[in-house]
Design a protein around this nucleic acid. Structure first.
Length: 274
DNA sequence: AGCAACGCCTGATAGC
DNA sequence: TGCTATCAGGCGTTGC
């Protein structure tokens, strides 16, 4: 599931590989992955544009194109964006292929939930999906003061709170579980009822687990591969996520799996008491 | 307004 | 064994 560390890895790789290349054409195999504009307009508007830069915002990939256009990509759960030079057979579930003047970039997604948008740079401020995102957790915009204020005014459970992209951008199910374990906080605790020291621990933990994820080039549990088609390695370093029934690395207690806000949630009942 | 539940999808896996 | 039911999950939408 591409979360901040996975998207950051893809961004770094694509920036090195395709910056300066031109999108000569795009082949659309599944129209619904194009959220806007209409597929025919998408193709007409994107052809011939040079890729000037690649950035990340939350879990979104942003490609700045020549002529003042922005290509936005969200991989949701099982989306993959892979650069390849061989013109061989396309992988199953390939929905979009950007043909470049050297190689091609393909969007593959088993679940078909990925979405792409093409918009004029001038319309970026009205683009809701990006405008409503909270601060980047690894930037200076994410401050203790901000995080504490948000915690205080929320009565939600802490896990759904962390997953809310309006609070902070880029955290998904894996890193939410890992951050709560690192901070020693039960995922069902109410955000507004955390103590100052717990809030402090969580602030630190969120940043730490995301940095570790980036350092390991992401977590490959099911579908994730980076822009070269390679798996990440952070799955080998997970403390609780996807480890139900296994011993807690800190105390040895069996890790439990429960559902919170409809999501599979892993935690240590001893280290993260209610 | 704020929050919880559902639907979108396919393939793997659990259960009978 | 072979079938069906359930689960996985980000996020927009729906409903309370």
């Amino acid at each position: 599931m591409p979360e901040l560390p996975e998207v950051e890895t893809i961004k770094e790789q694509l920036s090195a590989i395709i910056k300066g290349l031109t999108i000569t054409d795009v082949t659309i195999y599944l129209e619904k992955v194009i959220a806007a504009p209409a597929p025919a307009d998408f193709r007409r508007l994107i052809r011939g544009r040079k890729i000037l830069g690649v950035r990340r915002r939350g879990k979104f990939l942003l490609f700045t194109l020549g002529g003042g256009y922005l290509l936005v990509v969200h991989l949701r759960i099982s989306g993959q964006l892979v650069y390849e030079t061989e013109k061989g057979q396309l992988t199953r579930h390939t929905h979009l292929v950007f043909h470049l003047d050297r190689g091609r970039l393909r969007l593959t997604d088993l679940r078909q939930f990925s979405r792409v948008w093409l918009l004029p740079l001038t319309a970026q401020s009205q683009f809701k999906e990006l405008a409503e995102l909270g601060p980047e957790p690894l930037s200076d915009a994410f401050t203790r003061e901000y995080f504490f204020a948000e915690l205080k005014q929320s009565r939600r459970q802490i896990k759904p709170f962390l997953l809310d992209q309006r609070v902070v951008a880029g955290i998904g199910n894996i890193y939410a579980d890992e951050a709560l374990f690192a901070a020693g906080i039960h995922p069902a605790r109410r955000a507004g009822e955390l103590s100052t020291s717990e809030g402090e621990a969580l602030f630190t933990a969120v940043r730490a687990v995301l940095r570790q994820g980036v350092a390991h080039r992401g977590t490959s549990i099911r579908d994730y591969v980076d822009a070269t088609g390679t798996q990440g390695s952070h799955q080998h370093f997970l403390q609780v996520h996807n480890r139900a029934g296994k011993p807690c690395p800190r105390c040895g207690t069996k890790i439990e799996k429960i559902k919170i806000g409809g999501r599979g949630t892993y935690f240590c009942p001893y280290c993260q008491p209610l």
